[in-house]
Amino acid sequence: MSQKPGWLSARGIPWRRGRSRLVYDNPWISVSEHEATAPTGAQAVYGLVSFKNLALAILPIDAAGQVVLVGQHRFPFGDYSWEIPEGGGPKGEDPLAGARRELAEETGLAAAEWREILRLQLSNSVTDELAIGFLATGLAEIDTAAHADDTEDFALARVPFRQALDAAMAGHIRDALTVAMLLRAYHMAREGLLSDALTRAMLG
Rank of each mutant, 00 (worst) to 15 (best):
23 V>C: 06
40 T>C: 13
28 W>T: 14
47 G>H: 14
16 R>I: 08
37 T>Y: 03
40 T>Y: 12
19 R>L: 05
56 L>A: 02
32 S>R: 15
49 V>D: 00
45 V>Y: 11
18 G>C: 05
19 R>E: 02
36 A>K: 11
20 S>M: 09
43 Q>R: 15
57 A>Y: 03
52 K>Q: 01
51 F>Y: 14
39 P>S: 06
50 S>K: 06
23 V>D: 00
30 S>E: 12
48 L>T: 07
39 P>G: 06
55 A>H: 04
23 V>K: 08
31 V>K: 09
15 W>V: 14
54 L>E: 00
33 E>P: 09
50 S>L: 03
23 V>R: 12
19 R>C: 02
57 A>N: 03
27 P>L: 08
33 E>N: 10
42 A>D: 11
52 K>M: 01
41 G>V: 12
26 N>M: 08
47 G>C: 13
26 N>F: 06
31 V>L: 13
23 V>E: 01
44 A>Y: 06
54 L>V: 03
21 R>G: 04
20 S>T: 11
51 F>I: 01
18 G>Y: 04
38 A>W: 12
30 S>Y: 09
17 R>T: 05
23 V>I: 15
42 A>S: 12
54 L>M: 08
33 E>R: 15
52 K>Y: 03
24 Y>N: 04
16 R>P: 00
38 A>E: 08
27 P>W: 05
41 G>P: 04
46 Y>V: 15
21 R>L: 05
25 D>S: 15
26 N>S: 10
42 A>C: 07
41 G>F: 13
27 P>Q: 10
57 A>D: 00
31 V>F: 10
33 E>A: 13
32 S>Y: 05
28 W>E: 03
15 W>L: 09
42 A>V: 11
28 W>Y: 15
32 S>I: 07
50 S>N: 04
25 D>L: 15
38 A>S: 13
55 A>C: 09
37 T>D: 02
43 Q>A: 14
34 H>S: 04
25 D>K: 15
21 R>N: 01
34 H>D: 02
29 I>V: 15
45 V>D: 01
56 L>P: 01
40 T>F: 12
29 I>W: 13
48 L>N: 07
52 K>V: 03
15 W>F: 11
32 S>V: 10
30 S>R: 15
52 K>G: 01
35 E>D: 14
24 Y>H: 14
56 L>S: 01
42 A>I: 07
41 G>I: 11
15 W>G: 01
54 L>K: 11
53 N>E: 05
29 I>S: 04
41 G>A: 05
31 V>E: 02
44 A>P: 00
16 R>H: 09
33 E>T: 14
39 P>Y: 12
29 I>Q: 06
33 E>Y: 10
42 A>M: 10
54 L>Y: 12
26 N>V: 07
16 R>V: 08
40 T>D: 11
53 N>R: 14
37 T>N: 04
28 W>A: 09
35 E>F: 09
